[in-house]
Design a protein around this nucleic acid. Sequence first.
DNA 1: GTTAGCACTCAACCACAGAGAGTGCTAACA
DNA 2: TGTTAGCACTCTCTGTGGTTGAGTGCTAAC
Lengths: 349, 349
Amino acid sequence: MGWDEELNERKKAILRSIVDDYIHTALPVGSRTISRKHELGLSSATIRNEMADLEELGYIAQPHTSAGRIPSDKGYRFYVDNLVNIQDLANEEMQQIRKSMESKMGELGDLLKRATTLIASFTGYTTVAMTPHLEAYPVRTVQIVPVSPHRVLVVVVATGGIVNSRMVRLEGDLSEEDTQKLASFLSQKLSGKTVTELTVSLMAEAEKTLSLPDGVVIPVVECLRECIRRISHSEIVMEGMTNLFNFPEFNDLLKARDVMDLLREEDVLAALMQTVGKKANLEVRIGSENKLVPMRELSLVTTGYGNGQNQYGAIGVIGPTRMAYSRVISSIEYVRKLLDQEILRMMRE
Amino acid sequence: MGWDEELNERKKAILRSIVDDYIHTALPVGSRTISRKHELGLSSATIRNEMADLEELGYIAQPHTSAGRIPSDKGYRFYVDNLVNIQDLANEEMQQIRKSMESKMGELGDLLKRATTLIASFTGYTTVAMTPHLEAYPVRTVQIVPVSPHRVLVVVVATGGIVNSRMVRLEGDLSEEDTQKLASFLSQKLSGKTVTELTVSLMAEAEKTLSLPDGVVIPVVECLRECIRRISHSEIVMEGMTNLFNFPEFNDLLKARDVMDLLREEDVLAALMQTVGKKANLEVRIGSENKLVPMRELSLVTTGYGNGQNQYGAIGVIGPTRMAYSRVISSIEYVRKLLDQEILRMMRE
DNA sequence: GTTAGCACTCAACCACAGAGAGTGCTAACA
DNA sequence: TGTTAGCACTCTCTGTGGTTGAGTGCTAAC
């Protein structure tokens, strides 16, 4: 990318000024504004000339002839890659986040929820988080707890404090002893497995090996399958959805609806975040860089999180392309750091 | 209420026409429209006279001098109490609902979610449901499942298939045997209790009676408390939130925001629904009849549900005061009937 | 008691002018 | 040669005034 040569220092400074200004006014910014507000020691005329160049190169655009310039997606991209100054959060802010993240009896879900809420309130945008996949969490044990004569609670414990349980009704009776047998059989078969190997053959084997009463194995295994599905099915947490209404770009009710509809669809969000999950690093997708059509006017800042090895969920911030990238990046990075630590702690236990 | 005398048959017919018309056009309805569309055999002039009376009595109002009339809250109230024709759902519609509600391995949460989705899609409004209180579900047993050396899963089973479980980390060791002892102690103490009697004295008693290692009882009881809190804390399910955007009354972005903010607050919704929970019957709150300020321009149709005795949750439909009351009432009533049946079935097992 | 007719009201729509912000271009300047 | 002042030009935005049309209330006739 010959970008470094394409723009001299002065052009970079002007582009930065335009983006910075536009990010917090949402108004096209003119040459005079820049020459006054930002101390570049240049007259508006000079800046006009440079802006004409920047426009020709595609970094900025004019909504109409007599308006100032707004950054294009390419402009934002350059800004994010080369110009943005990432400032650490203020000390009190970091402290506030740390305090909120410290959990006494944390389960992963709670923790993520808190992290998401924090980022949403610190950035003022919509924040989404996804829990890790099943692959990240091999099954540790399966327990079966008798509840009433014909009902048992199936509990699946995976590594990392992940638990899911579900009640199931049995067709036949199940003695205390048989319960035990079935549970340890299933535990043994599934322990360490990360993939759902709950095939028909497993059921057949269970029925043959254990000689249990009819109408017991199938419901239990079905239930187990559902539990594992729930663990593996990445859960989506979202906070600050209505934050987007604060921005003038969504004053148009039609656009607002589109975005709302997008955010309402958990599947879509999940798909969106899944593409991130594998990578740990911070990623910024600006406007048209997004594949999803309704996201074309939005930016998405994401990062994976996890224990530093292979298990990753993802967090993302969604806002207008005119996004306070600096603030978003520093917030999300800091929260992610703490999140990683907490998870590591939880896994170790 | 001298309403029956206040309005003669003709006035009632005209009021009904106005409400019916306004409900599906959202446009102020004029005298000519009524004399043409609805077959009352009256000229527009006559209707104008009657409308002047209805306005004086407060049933309808004029947005401005040269506009038609729109119903007032009082008008809607009269309509709902005296004029609305509740029509049963079509046979295919009922069948569709029945099919969706039939659950194979139903847990209450799933069932409610499905019911809510159904009503939202049948009415086109926002639908909210609340799970029943704890009082409805006495604790049956407490189970403690060992997971790893220092971690156990606490499971609370209440009547009616309600289960909640939560992982807790222990400070000290807990043998298999002690686990058993503690669980049966807690089960015994809490069984049948509907109120959380998890006082400090209980912990003290447990520690004295059972002579367990340090750092075990307190975390477990804390965890138990949390489980019970979760069961008792009415959960809110909502569907079709964005449906409201379809209505012109929310074209104003400011109003839309207000409503969104209202709906986002689970606590507020919970409070709203809780006032309904105790009563089983259908209730309609129109506009200003609502206590909550942001609800003053909305209507809320609610009904309790349960097993016919004392345990009630609630379902509600939220929409503009200009709501298709007939359709909403028939939908909600039908779903509630099925829901009651399902719950009764679940409780019996 | 009902209806036709008429004058009146008022929101909604449109056209148009003026203001203001910002530009591109030219010519002067360092 | 790069920078700047000046100027004509463009285009949005705002406010104003006139017109249209729906709907009303009132009066007088049926």
